[in-house]
Structure formats: structure tokens, C-alpha cells
Simulated assay, not measured.
Amino acid sequence: MSEPPLIELSGITKVFGRGAAAFQALKGVDLTIQRGDFVAVMGPSGSGKSTTMNILGCLDTPTSGVFRFRGIEVQSLDRDQRSLLRRRYLGFVFQGFNLLARTSALENVELPLLYRGERKAVRRDAAMKALDLVGLAPWADHTPAELSGGQQQRVAIARALVTGPDVLLADEPTGNLDTERSIEIMKLLADLNRDGITVLMVTHEYEMAEYAKTIVHFRDGLVESIEQGSRAGAGETA
């Protein structure tokens, strides 16, 4: 028996507000994402891409339709169950690095495990492994002010990886970086994807989206088109 898709959206709608003030952000989104894919989501402001990502991240719920994650209908879960799914299977990376300013890179990466109540030794070991994965183990004791923008985003990615998520959700991960640092981060995400992590990324930059295996274009609350990224695999080392 074949494994079900990692993520399935079927007829997903989302309405904000009521009555005359109601706004339909999603109008019946259908999307399937397989385990191990690297998906870039694009579209103009108001197209529905951010609303869809919030639903995929279990940060919001659809008004109607079916959202399956690993075969489980997520919209039928209660708030605590969705929170557990989010903590267990999802890692988040944001445009703003959201690092604690007076805290070392290692301690920033430890935070999700601290919230889980893990012992200090377990936290330290997992955080060092995550920093090593993004190439920043030598900078473990540095604070964000002592790191470049690209290094800060690597710390943020390590923090998202430290819990061992199935899916990495990245919201404009290169939005605050120059071109060189942006390419560095995209190659890192491509490397992580090749190591087995499913990556879902929102971006406005087509040249960054091309690093993904799949590019999904949103418009007016629907999936307008799907294409393949032309640079997929560009993170490979020579």
C-alpha cells in the first residue's frame, strides 16, 4: 500500500469577517505536497499564499474544505491537538530572525527544547548538532549582534530544525538579506531538503523560488499554476 501524500488540501476556503465586511481569502484551494518536496509559494499581496501557509502551519483553520497531514484530517482536531501537531512535526523560519539579542546562538537554538522541558544536557547536545548542520558550530557562543544577517538566519533555521520536524515552513527567509546571503540560505535549504526535510517557502523573489523543486503560484485565492524550479539541486556541492 502506497504512502499517502504528506499534505493534501482539498476545496479549502477561508473567510474573514462576517456579513457585508466578509472577505474570502481562499476560494477552494486544491494542493498536494509529497514527502521530500521543496515547494516555493508565490503570488501578489492578497493572493492567499500567506493564509494558506498559516493553515498548513496549523496557525489557522479553514472555513471549509479538507486539510490532511500524514492522512489525518487536521480541521477535525481541537486546538490542543493542532498545537501538538505543530510542535511535533513543523519547524518555522521567519523573515525577521526573531532571535533573543542577549542570548548566544546555542541558547537561541535550545529554546524549543526548553519549552518542551528537556534536560539541559539533552538541549545542549541537540542544539550543537543543529548548529553543526547549518555550519555554525564554531559560532555557538556568539550573540546575534556578533553574527552577519546570513549567520543569524542560519541560527534561526537551526532553531527550527532542533526538534526534528518533518516540515520546515519558511516565510520570506531571504527577505532581509542581500543577494549573496540569500543564495547562501537557499543552498542551505536545498541541502536540508536533499537530506529528507520537506520545505515549504513563501517568497516574492522568483530567483529564490527557482531553487525549489515545485513553484506554486497563487492568484485571487486560488492556485493559478504549478511549475518546476529551474535551479532545483543548485545547493549541491562540487
Rank of each mutant, 00 (worst) to 15 (best):
Leu168Ala: 03
Leu114Ser: 10
Ala170Glu: 06
Ala145Phe: 04
Thr179Gly: 04
Ala140Gln: 11
Thr174Ile: 04
Ala170Ser: 07
Val134Ala: 08
Asp171Tyr: 14
Val162Gln: 06
Lys129Phe: 10
Asp125Leu: 15
Gln153Cys: 13
Ser182Val: 08
Arg181Val: 06
Trp139Arg: 10
Ala145Trp: 00
Arg154Cys: 02
Lys120Glu: 14
Ile157Tyr: 01
Glu146Ser: 02
Pro165Met: 04
Gln153Ala: 15
Pro112Asn: 01
Gly175Leu: 10
Lys120Trp: 05
Asp141Trp: 10
Glu146Trp: 00
Glu172Leu: 06
Arg181Glu: 15
Arg116Ala: 15
Arg159Gly: 13
Pro112Arg: 08
Arg124Ile: 14
Gln151His: 02
Leu131Gly: 09
Pro144Ser: 04
Leu131His: 09
Thr179Lys: 09
Ala156Asn: 04
Gly164Arg: 00
Arg154Lys: 10
Ala160Val: 03
Trp139Lys: 03
Glu184Asp: 15
Pro165Ile: 01
Leu131Trp: 11
Ala156Met: 07
Lys129Pro: 13
Asp141Met: 08
Ser148Trp: 05
Pro144Glu: 01
Leu161Asn: 02
Leu113Val: 07
Gly149Cys: 09
Ser182Thr: 12
Val122Pro: 01
Ala145Asp: 06
Gly135Ala: 09
Ala137Trp: 09
Asp171Ile: 02
Ala145Asn: 08
Leu169Asp: 06
Leu136Ala: 04
Ala170Leu: 11
Asp125Ser: 15
